[in-house]
Design a protein around this nucleic acid. Structure first.
Lengths: 209, 209
DNA sequence: TGTACATCAGTGAACGCGCGTTCACTGATGTAC
DNA sequence: TGTACATCAGTGAACGCGCGTTCACTGATGTAC
C-alpha cells in the first residue's frame, strides 16, 4: 500500500530513501534481465534477490508482490518502445504518410525482435493478472496510437474522427499480428526481411488507394 | 511412447481397447471443458480425473503427460476452427473475392469470440511447450491459409506464387491481430460490431485498389 | 463349460519439487537531550 | 560531542500450498487346456 507511492513522504532520512530507491532500481534491473532471458515465467524471487544483491525478504520491503514488480518492468518497456517508435519519425516530415507508417511499423518490428521477451510480456501480462489494467498502461498505448493517427489524417482526410480512430486500431492490431506470428519461429519461420515486405504489402495497400 | 500411437496394436481384447478409447474421450472432453472455462492454466490432473470419472493414475495410462493431452484438445479445436472457416465459404462462389475474405475473417472472429479460451490456447500453447510443433499443427494452419489464398488469386492475378503466399500470411496475421487485441476487454473494449467494421476496413482497402 | 493362471487397466496414497510470502530477529541509522 | 533510546531497512530460515507424476497393489478381463 505504501509501496504504491514511489517515494515515502518522510521529510528527513533521505539516505534511507536513497538506499531504498537504489534497491528498487536493482530489483527492476534484475527483473528486466530475467524477463529478457526467459520471459515472465523466469522471474523467481530467489533469482531476483541474488542478482540485486539483497535478501529474499528485502524484495517485499519495496514491492507488494512479484506481479507489481513485473508491472514496473512493463512500464519501462513501454517507455522504451514509445521512444523507438517516436524516433522513427524524426526527420520524416517530408515523407509520404504511407512511408511514415511503414517506418513506424518497422521500428515496432525492430523493437519486438530485439527485446522479444520484454515485448511479449507487455501483452502477456495483462492477461495473467487480475484486476483492471493500470491507467498509465492505457495511456502509454494511446500515445502509440497517436503516432499512427497523424499520417492517417493525411491519407483519409474525409474520415470522421471516430472512423479514423478505428482505422488506427486496425492498423496497429494488424502490424502487431504480423510481428507476433512472424517472430514465432515455431509456427512461422519467416525471415526478418520478409516480415518487412509483409508490413509494406499491408500498408502500401492502405496508402495507395 | 506407446501412447503416441492412438490405438494399441493388440489383435484381440477389443473390449479393453474400447474402454481405453472411451476413457481417452472422456479425458479430452474434460480437458476441453476446463480450458473453455479457465484457459490452459486451469487444467489440473485432479479435476480431469474427477470430471472424467477415473482415478488420478488412470490419466497416465492414456497420455504421457498433461501437455500431450492439451495438445489433443488443440487438435480438436483446430479442426472445429477449420470447419467454421470452410463453412463461411459455402455458397459464396458468386461473391466478390473481397467479400469472401470478409466472411472468412468474420467466421474467424466468431469462432474466437465463442470459444475464446480454446482459441487462445491454440496459440498460447506452442509458446509454453518445448520441442518442435507437431506436423499436424502446421498442416492444419496451412489448410487455413489455403482458404485465403484462393480469393487472393482473383484479387492479385499478377502476383507470383511466393508473393501471394506472403500476402496470405499478411492477411491472416492482420486479422488474427485485430481479433486478438480486440477481444481483450482489458486493453481494448471494442464492441463486437466495431470489430467487424475494422475487419471490413482492412480487407476492403486490400480489395479495392 | 470349468478351472488355473497370466495379463493389464485402473487405483489413490504418497512423493517430491518449486516457489511466493512471512516473520521473529538483528544491526544500522536517525533522534532527543 | 556523547549517550540512550527508537525506528526501520534488511535477513533468511521456515511455512504452506499447489500440483504433476509415480508405484505397489487390486481386481477385472482374457487365455490355455
Amino acid at each position: 500500500m505504501e509501496n504504491a507511492t514511489p517515494h515515502k513522504p518522510a521529510a528527513a532520512g533521505s539516505a534511507r530513501e536513497a538506499r531504498r530507491a537504489r534497491l528498487r532500481g536493482h530489483l527492476i534491473e534484475a527483473a528486466e534481465e530475467l524477463i529478457r532471458e526467459g520471459g515472465i515465467e523466469a522471474v523467481k524471487a530467489r533469482d531476483l534477490a541474488r542478482m540485486a544483491g539483497c535478501s529474499l525478504g528485502a524484495i517485499y520491503t519495496v514491492f507488494d508482490d512479484l506481479d507489481q514488480q513485473a508491472m514496473a518492468v512493463n512500464g519501462r518497456t513501454f517507455r522504451k518502445l514509445g521512444a523507438v517508435v517516436a524516433a522513427s519519425q524524426t526527420g520524416a516530415d517530408s515523407l509520404a504518410p504511407t512511408e511514415r507508417l511503414v517506418r513506424m511499423a518497422c521500428a515496432y518490428l525492430g523493437f519486438a525482435t530485439e527485446h522479444n521477451n520484454l515485448w511479449r510480456t507487455l501483452f502477456d501480462f495483462e492477461m495473467s493478472t487480475e484486476g483492471p489494467v493500470p491507467k498509465w498502461y492505457l495511456e502509454e498505448l494511446s500515445r502509440l496510437f497517436d503516432h499512427i493517427r497523424e499520417p492517417l489524417r493525411e491519407i483519409f482526410p474525409e474520415m470522421s474522427e471516430e472512423e479514423r480512430d478505428l482505422m488506427t486500431r486496425t492498423l496497429f492490431s494488424s502490424v502487431h499480428g504480423i510481428v507476433l506470428l512472424g517472430l514465432d519461429r515455431r509456427i512461422s519461420a519467416v525471415p526478418r526481411e520478409k516480415l518487412e515486405t509483409m508490413i509494406r504489402m499491408l500498408l502500401c495497400q492502405i496508402g495507395n488507394r
